[in-house]
Structures are given as C-alpha cells and as structure tokens.
Simulated assay, not measured.
Amino acid sequence: MEAYTCTDLGLESRDDVVYNYSKNSGDFSDHGDSGSLIFTGDGDGLAILHSGMPRGRHNHVTYGTPLWWVIKQILDKYPSAELYGITYTLD
C-alpha cells in the first residue's frame, strides 16, 4: 500500500506501508532495521525501510520510502548520476 501526505507548508511524504501478514507472523521490522531494503514477493526492490510502530496487541506497521521516489530525488539533484544500469518503473 502507498501513502502520500502533504503538510500546510507543502512538504511531501511518500511511503510504502507494510502490515503484518498475520497475528502469528511476528513484526515485519524491528529496532535497527532502518535503511534495509524491502522487496516484493517477486524479489523486486520496493522501498527503503525507515520506521515501524505497533498498532495494538498483534499489529505492527512498517513504513518505507519507495525506491522510485529515492531514484527520482537522486537524479533530480545529480542528473549525471550513474546507477549501474538500475532503472525503476511503476509497472
């Protein structure tokens, strides 16, 4: 799931949201996991994990910055950046 927010000052936040698979699966993320890559079930890169928080007794929510957003920000700032052939599409 993707979440998007914009503050009154125009600051944007884009996050991919990961919910626990089940009550018995354990938390998806823990302290010290920030900066880890989150992959899809097909093995494609999805996001860079930045936070997680408990939501009730058996629920945990993890947030990550989408890789397409990270790559866009890098290329906007450094248009000549070489990403070693890495491309990212929303397909």
Rank of each mutant, 00 (worst) to 15 (best):
M1L: 10
M1I: 11
E2T: 12
E2Q: 12
A3R: 12
T5I: 08
C6L: 12
C6H: 03
T7C: 00
T7G: 06
T7N: 05
L9T: 15
G10E: 05
G10P: 02
G10D: 04
L11I: 11
L11H: 13
S13P: 00
R14M: 11
R14Q: 10
D16R: 06
V17C: 01
V17Q: 02
V18P: 00
N20S: 12
Y21I: 14
Y21T: 15
S22C: 10
S22V: 07
K23L: 09
S25E: 05
S25C: 15
D27W: 05
D27S: 15
D27Y: 04
S29P: 03
D30W: 08
D30N: 13
H31W: 12
G32K: 03
G32L: 01
D33A: 11
S34P: 04
G35K: 03
L37C: 13
I38A: 11
I38P: 01
F39K: 07
T40C: 01
D42A: 14
G43N: 05
G43F: 00
G45T: 11
G45W: 02
G45L: 13
L46Y: 00
L46W: 01
A47V: 06
I48G: 02
I48M: 15
L49A: 09
G52S: 15
G52Q: 06
M53Q: 11
M53E: 14
P54N: 11
P54W: 00
R55Q: 12
G56M: 00
G56Y: 00
G56F: 00
R57Y: 04
H58S: 14
H58G: 06
H58P: 02
N59H: 09
N59S: 15
H60A: 09
H60D: 04
H60P: 02
V61W: 00
V61I: 15
Y63H: 09
Y63K: 07
Y63Q: 09
G64C: 02
G64F: 00
T65N: 10
T65Y: 00
P66F: 02
W68L: 12
W68K: 15
W69H: 14
V70Y: 01
V70D: 04
I71P: 08
I71F: 04
I71M: 11
Q73K: 13
L75W: 01
D76L: 09
K77V: 13
K77I: 12
Y78D: 09
P79D: 08
S80N: 14
S80Y: 09
S80L: 09
S80Q: 14
A81S: 10
E82L: 08
E82S: 15
Y84L: 13
G85C: 05
G85Q: 07
I86V: 15
I86T: 10
T87P: 01
Y88Q: 07
Y88I: 10
Y88R: 09
Y88C: 13
T89R: 03
T89E: 08
L90G: 11
D91F: 10
